[in-house]
Design a protein around this nucleic acid. Structure first.
Length: 503
RNA sequence: GAGGCGGUAGCUCAGCGGUAGAGCACUGGCCUUUUAAGCCAGGGGUCGAGGGUUCAACCCCCUCCCGCCUCACCA
């Protein structure tokens, strides 16, 4: 049967229901409990007499229907809990009962009655009155296999959420993660702030931006690629500890690890350095695991990951020596690095700076081995234009990236607070841009001006919320943790029968 | 951007160069404690789109669209 015919059929049933006296499509329905509350309160209550006295008004989506002549069972589903509902002709009367048997899977109903337990012991509501709250005009995916077609799952995420409990649990967990992060940071004296998404000049990361246009100002604007430079202005402004749960936009490819818009926690703490931020990070992630799972040992892709702090610190150059087999001399031997990089398939290795060569080699040789939580520290200065130089080696910066389960989760520095050095670093980026590096950081004089008023020593962190959620939900595609991942637009044809397509 | 895989009923999937299939869902009937309810009967298809080869194409060929995976790009 075509979708149009389903709609037609259900339309006819709705008309029948309207004439049965059952309340139809009301503006509100007063509930006494959510389904979660009812199950929580009475799920273990065995006393039949006591259950009998519980009168409840509940609502949910009909997710199964079993009818047996003069009685009908169904389950209604809420956000997490579901409850069985039992309708009898003798309790409802012939009209309301007949209407109940004409429900469709997917309809949203409100029910009123008392609780009891069936023969098999299942907590159930015996309906006395009911109302149709919303009509489901189209058939739902079948309950047994759920919805598996990936494209359909992303384009119609609501169906995915209805049909696949695991998907629901991922997004509930994501919400919990963000809530716990706020709780953790608030308890440490951070304040949550909001900074511009529309920026006249983008910065704070090395990436290509989306461009847009303000009509009245007649000005080009960019969607932010990171909130970093605004948050650090706030540290200049004495706010001392700030964070933002920031949606960032990067005009880059889509993959299992990248969505053009994604969510990053950024935080800045005055008077701290990157060592402090490492401790903060491991404590925060350990807090999350403990609150979510009650343990610091989690499973990701069949590997057990131990989140117990302190985590391994691995200086980038040390990693190349240990895992990559480099000697200290080789690390500064440009010809050797170029040859090794070319060997590993790095394109245009000869054109890369020392820092980029080191980073490429590290990424290929060492990164895949990082399953247990690891802070990779001390990056080359030329790929880190916003990080402060290492106190005992000006070729490097005080920066770390966090890897867990092979995922790159975060990036942090001792923030560069010297306006003169910052200006030179921007100028260096500008030169890279002129040689064709489209991701080089643009010069932001307004930001340097802010630094001239004095940025205290500051530690900052960017933590990928999407990827952190992937880790905690044991999924390998970022689209599984983003409710509506970016897909190419396709036209939709509405299955509305022509005779119903009027006012 | 390159390569691989996929798109068949509302959903999950078979299928074969020769009349389009199953399970669930749907419709009608029976059934007052069922739960992947059961039993009986029935309806439902632009086989992603377009072109080509062929007596004949869901199937073979070409182009395109959409998606997934790997790689590249990308921190």
């Amino acid at each position: 049967m075509s979708e149009v015919e389903y709609v037609r059929e259900r339309w006819a049933r709705l008309q029948k229901l309207r004439s049965s006296g059952v309340e139809t499509l009301p503006y509100r329905f007063e509930i006494t409990h959510t389904l979660e509350e009812i199950v929580e309160l009475y799920g273990h209550e065995q006393d039949a007499g006591r259950l009998q006295t519980v009168w409840a008004r509940l609502a949910g989506r009909v997710q199964s229907l079993r009818w047996h002549g003069k009685t009908t069972f169904c389950h209604i589903q809420g956000r997490q809990a579901r409850l069985q509902v039992y309708a009898r002709q003798d309790a409802l009367g012939p009209e309301a009962y007949e209407a109940f048997t004409n429900l469709d899977l997917g309809d949203v109903i409100g029910v009123e009655g008392h609780l009891f337990r069936t023969k098999t012991g299942e907590l159930t509501l015996a309906v006395q009155r009911w109302a149709l709250l919303a009509k489901c005009w189209l058939p739902l995916p079948e309950p047994w296999h759920g919805l598996t077609d990936v494209e359909a799952r992303y384009r119609r995420r609501y169906l995915d959420l209805i049909a696949n409990p695991r998907v629901r649990s991922i997004f509930l967990r994501r919400s919990q993660i963000v809530r716990l992060i706020r709780q953790f940071l608030d308890s440490r004296g951070f304040i949550e702030v909001e900074t511009p998404v529309l920026q006249p000049l983008y910065g704070g990361a090395l990436a290509r931006p989306f461009k847009t246009y303000h009509n009245v100002l007649e000005a080009e604007l960019f969607l932010r690629i990171a909130p970093e430079l605004y948050l650090k202005r706030l540290i200049v402004g004495n706010l001392e500890r700030v964070y933002e749960v920031a949606r960032n936009f990067r005009n880059e490819g889509v993959s299992t690890l990248h969505n053009p818009e994604f969510t990053m926690l950024e935080l800045y703490q005055a008077y701290a350095d990157y060592e402090d931020i490492m401790r903060l990070t491991e404590e925060m992630v350990a807090f999350l695991a403990t609150e979510l799972f009650g343990t610091l040992r989690i499973t990701f892709q069949d590997q057990t990951i131990d989140l117990t702090p302190p985590w391994r610190r691995l200086p980038m150059l040390a990693g190349l020596m240990e895992v990559g087999g480099f000697t200290e001399e080789q690390l500064y031997d440009r010809a050797f690095l170029v040859a090794r990089a070319a060997e590993l398939g790095v394109p245009r290795a000869g054109d890369l700076s020392w820092g980029k060569l080191i980073a490429e080699l590290f990424e290929r040789l060492v990164q895949p081995t990082l399953v247990q939580p690891t802070f990779v520290t001390d990056f080359p200065v030329d790929i880190s234009p916003l990080a402060r130089r290492k106190r005992d080696d000006p070729r490097l910066v005080e920066r770390f990236e966090l890897f867990i389960g092979g995922l790159e989760l975060g990036n942090a520095f001792s923030e560069l607070n010297d306006p003169f050095d910052q200006k030179r670093r921007f100028e260096d980026q500008q030169r890279q841009r002129e040689t064709g590096d489209v991701e080089a950081h643009p010069i932001d004089a307004d930001y340097v001006l802010a630094l001239m008023y004095g940025l205290p020593p500051t530690g900052g962190l960017g933590l990928g919320i999407d990827r952190l959620t992937m880790l905690f939900c044991d999924v390998t595609s970022i689209r599984e943790v983003i409710l509506f991942p970016l897909l190419r637009w396709v036209p939709v044809e509405l299955p509305i029968p022509p005779e119903l397509d009027r006012t």
